[in-house]
Amino acid sequence: MHNYRLTHLKELESESIHILREVAAQFEHPALLFSGGKDSIVCFHLARKAFFPAKVPFPLVHIDTGHNFPETMRFRDALVQEHGVTLIVGSVQESIDQGKVQEETGYHASRNKLQTVTLLDTIETHKIDCAIGGGRRDEEKARAKERVFSHRDEFGQWDPKNQRPELWDLYNGRKRPGEHFRAFPISNWTEMDVWQYILHEDIAIPSIYFSHEREVFERDGVLYANSDFMRLKPEERPYMRRVRFRTIGDMSCTGAVDSPAATLEEIIEEVASSRVTERGSRIDDKRSEAAMEDRKKEGYF
């Protein structure tokens, strides 16, 4: 008698593949939101598995703030080339140039919030009826309540108090014209699951996840990468330091962590003993207690 038992990573993988196939079956123009971060990379890897030997049947969408880490952009372009997928880029700079959004000013200026407008514009322009994202419920408390198939009204808004019940693995993607969905295939994965899966499946990720020497400066207890996008205060002095990034957003809202972890095994060990969440290095979440919920209601990732 065999032992018909799946490990938890295999069970999560199976659930995610099922979700991706449901998206492809239920929607006409789905797309995968691809930031070049580890979660969207894992989603793309799962999509390749879900549709093998066919190609992934939807394009990637990158909402480009113009403030990206150059390493992430190189990684994105190499991945698109290697797998022959279509890449749609929604540019925040264009939204600014068109006058749809106004650039924030001051030392804390970030394009994080502006992305929502560009994202919703891109969804509308390309008639995307389901945008697949790499959000996880363990990341943030507003995300913990989000459905796998998450409905958005014609303004792209999320109504957290009025979500559809979601039972078993039956996903209701029915909608009216003009509305769209967000789908989250790795909802039930934790940060640790993602890292273990990357190790187990030998998935390539951008180099800035690993320890490296970088010019940084400190502000409000956070280590920022020094770049042309950041306006330094007079007392802020950039210096070289051995760091890595635990999450990747754009350069203005992602903090680095001190770390010697240069391999996946070392990263996993570091994550296992860490006493703060990965969002702890995300300045975008810290603007208020409900920062994520407020942005999500407006249509954020």
């Binding site: 419920r137 309540k145 409900a290 407020d294």
Partner: peptide, 20 residues
């Protein structure tokens, strides 16, 4: 577990929350 603004303001849990 009460992640939504309305839940914290009203001190009630509105929806299923998933914890890991």
């Amino acid at each position: 577990t009460d992640g939504l603004r309305a839940e914290r303001e009203q001190g009630i849990t509105i929806d299923v929350a998933y914890r890991y």
